[in-house]
Amino acid sequence: MSEGYLIAVWILIPIMAIFGFPLTSWALGRWYQGRLIAALDVKEKQQGKLMQNESVLSTSSRMTNFSAPSSTLLHVSICVGPSTGQMFFMWIKSIFGGRLHSYDVILDYGRREVLQRLHEQAKSLDCSSMINIRIETSTVSFAKNQNNKTSSVEFLAFATGLRS
C-alpha cells in the first residue's frame, strides 16, 4: 500500500515540475488578457459613438470628396505576445494542428488596440478623419540567445490624418 503511494508520488512530482509552471502561466495569461480585452471593449464603445458621424475612415487613398486644409502622418505600433504557458500548450496543440486559440485572441487584441491608439493619436493631433489606413504585422524578438523563446508580434498602423 505504502509502496503504491510512493510510486504515485514519484510519478506525480516530475509531472508537476513539467506542467506546473506552464499551467500557472497559462491561467495567469488567460486572466490578464481577458481583462485587457474587456477594457478595450469599453474604450471601443466610447470611441465608436464619438467617431460615428463626424469622421471618415478609409483604406483608400482617393479623397475626391474632401478638401482638407492640412494633413499629417500618423503612426502607432504595439508589441504583443502570448504568455509562456500559452506558447507551451500551443506547441503541444500544433502537433495535432487546428485552431490556436491563444494566438487568435492575442493577435485580435493587438490589432484592435493599435487601431484604437491610432484613433487616439488622430484625436490628439486634431485630425477629424483618416485615409489610407494600413496595418502591418511583423515578428520581433530582442532576445539575445536563441534559446530564449521571448517572442512578440508587432503591429504597426499608419494613416494620413486630415484636419478639417
Binding site: G29, V80, I106
Partner: peptide, 13 residues
C-alpha cells in the same frame, strides 16, 4: 511574458 499581453518595453523601443 509570464502573463503575455502588451510588451511595453518593446513598444517603446
Amino acid at each position: 511574458n509570464i502573463v503575455g499581453g502588451e510588451l511595453k518595453a518593446y513598444t517603446e523601443l
